[in-house]
Design a protein around this nucleic acid. Structure first.
Length: 494
RNA sequence: GCGACGGUCGUCCAGUUUGGUCUAGGACAUCAGAUUGCCAAUCUGGUAACCCGGGUUCAAAUCCCGGCUGUCGCACCA
């Protein structure tokens, strides 16, 4: 039997076999789709990815990070527009069960525009008056229902209406004025957050790529709309190349040229696209297979006036990893009018009172991790189909393996001791079972960049060999300097 | 959510057509022992699975019904 596996399938296999991720609640038959857990290797990779994100985006730009709640009151989502915009009228065929979005379906079949304000009963009327039937079986439609992508929860004994957040950023918006005041804010000011979001997807698919419960890393840059080109730090990034795709043609230009040619509207947006580019280039993703796709009007979210998606090419097509939206003052305006609080601030640089605008970088962590795994997956056919995850050393779940060459002559005791010294400061892994070659392969499969081997020479002169995952070459290092050697080798990049 | 096709050890697959030596087999992985000692070595032994629930039957991994789930297509993806 000869079957061809796609890269997606290889990554799935590796993830299941080696503890990167796997379905949630899998021992139960009623486990719902769209929920996945990270195993030990996955958690480690995720944590290191987040640490890189903090370094390259949060700390680099002097952003502030918060950690907000996942359950938020109904009012938040009235203000955000999610109660109305996140809800779709749904019609279901009584005969074959096919389900459609009522407004789109009517528009397509009858040519009538269905405004969002219409009640279910009014839409029912339109369906009756126009004899709208199911396209699959010509059956009758049932009554219109509302489907909301948000998970509703009930708070306390009265089950007060609240929701699991469908995006992390809402906590940032509602916290903005307090943070701005207490953290002595200046515009532009970035507020970042990592956390879980929840969307009741109709059909979750492809493991980490469309989840109902997922991780986001979001950055909301609060800015003065009159000063989007008044950004001295833009000079740090002006020569960084951006790959911009408008749906038909690619433009590979520097950040400065992108503005000059009108591909990017201003320095502020360009600056953050550059930070993203630099961040992702350090994750091990092949930047030649990435692009910023400029979204045409009809594809933009309801709040975005300018939008770029950062996308990566994978074996299953182009994958959106980050949505970059210029949200203007949509969010603060909404929260201001719903909460009846004045959310304006005084721009300390010129003492004008404004409601800041927001440029957002909304990153999907789970998808990013998948893209990293796929771009780092290599098969080495010169060495019996050696499978190597060429993860960046600072992202590898296990940084170093400690292996006695043999389990005799006191070598394993020596290895124990070295492992004990390293494990507090590094993600080290001690492996004594199987041949040395097999142990190297096991380590490479989960991306471990270094393997320390304890051999007879170790007992003579207190050195070990350190093997490099990618070149398979070994050098001798004194045990006393192992700590600093590894520290240098796996630290985050300059 | 609809449709088509699937779901068997950690992973991949055989077995289902035609119900019965299937007490479910293999490979890889994994564990223990032996042997070896720098790139998936060898030998011996072990652990480990029929998605869940109901039905038909003397008998169900196999047939039927429902659920869950996976892949693909449609729809959805703020």
């Amino acid at each position: 039997m000869f079957t061809i596996m796609s890269n997606y399938e290889f990554i799935m296999k590796l993830a299941l076999e080696r503890g990167f991720y796997f379905p949630s609640c899998e021992i139960y038959a009623d486990a719902p789709a769209g929920f996945w857990e990270y195993g030990p290797r996955g958690v480690s990779l995720k944590n290191k990815f987040i640490e890189l994100w903090r370094r390259e985006l949060v700390r680099r730009d002097g952003m502030i990070e918060i950690d907000g709640t996942q359950i938020m009151s109904k009012s938040v989502f009235i203000a955000s527009g999610h109660i109305s915009n996140f809800t779709d009228p749904i019609i279901k065929c009584t005969k074959c069960g096919s389900t459609f979005r009522a407004d789109k379906y009517i528009n397509e079949k009858v040519g009538l525009n269905v405004p969002e304000r219409l009640t279910n009963e009014e839409i029912d009327q339109i369906i009756q008056n126009n004899q709208v039937k199911c396209q699959n079986c010509v059956g009758e439609f049932g009554r219109v229902n509302q489907f909301n992508m948000m998970f509703r929860v009930g708070i306390g004994p009265t089950q007060e209406e609240a929701y699991l957040r469908p995006e992390t950023c809402q906590t940032i918006f509602v916290d903005f004025t307090r943070i701005f005041k207490t953290m002595r804010g200046r515009l532009p000011m970035g507020i970042a957050q990592i956390g879980k979001s929840f969307r009741n997807e109709i059909s979750p698919r492809q493991s980490l790529l469309r989840l109902r419960e997922f991780y986001q890393a979001e950055i909301e840059v609060f800015c003065n709309p009159n000063k989007l080109n008044d950004l001295s730090k833009f000079d740090e990034v002006r020569d960084i190349p951006l790959n911009i795709y408008n749906g038909s043609t690619y433009s590979q230009v520097t950040a400065a040229d992108a503005i000059h040619k009108g591909l990017v509207p201003n320095k502020l947006v360009a600056y953050y696209l550059c930070l993203l580019t630099e961040f992702y280039s350090k994750t091990g993703i092949d930047m030649k297979r990435t692009r910023f796709r400029q979204l045409p009007n009809e594809d933009r979210a309801f709040y975005a006036s300018v939008a770029f998606d950062f996308e990566v090419e994978t074996s299953i097509g182009w994958l959106e990893l980050v949505a970059c939206n210029y949200r203007s003052n949509y969010d603060l305006k909404g929260h201001s009018s719903t909460s009846k609080q004045n959310l304006e601030i005084v721009d300390p640089t010129d003492l004008t009172k404004i409601l800041p605008h927001i440029f957002e970088l909304s990153m999907g962590i789970d998808r990013s991790l998948y893209a990293i795994l796929e771009h780092c997956y290599f098969e080495d056919f010169e060495h019996e189909n050696r499978i190597v995850l060429k993860l960046k050393p600072y992202l590898a779940p296990v940084s170093v393996g400690v292996l006695p060459l043999v389990n005799r002559n006191g070598l394993s005791q020596r290895a124990d001791k070295i492992y004990a010294e390293l494990k507090q400061d590094f993600d080290a892994f001690l492996d004594v079972s199987g041949s040395i070659g097999r142990r190297y392969r096991r380590l490479e499969e989960i991306g471990t960049p270094f393997a320390i081997t304890v051999d007879r020479t170790t007992l003579e002169n207190n050195t070990v060999t350190v093997r490099d995952r990618d070149s398979m070459e070994q050098i001798r290092v004194e045990i006393s300097s192992l700590h600093s050697y590894l520290h240098n080798a796996i630290r985050l990049p300059k």
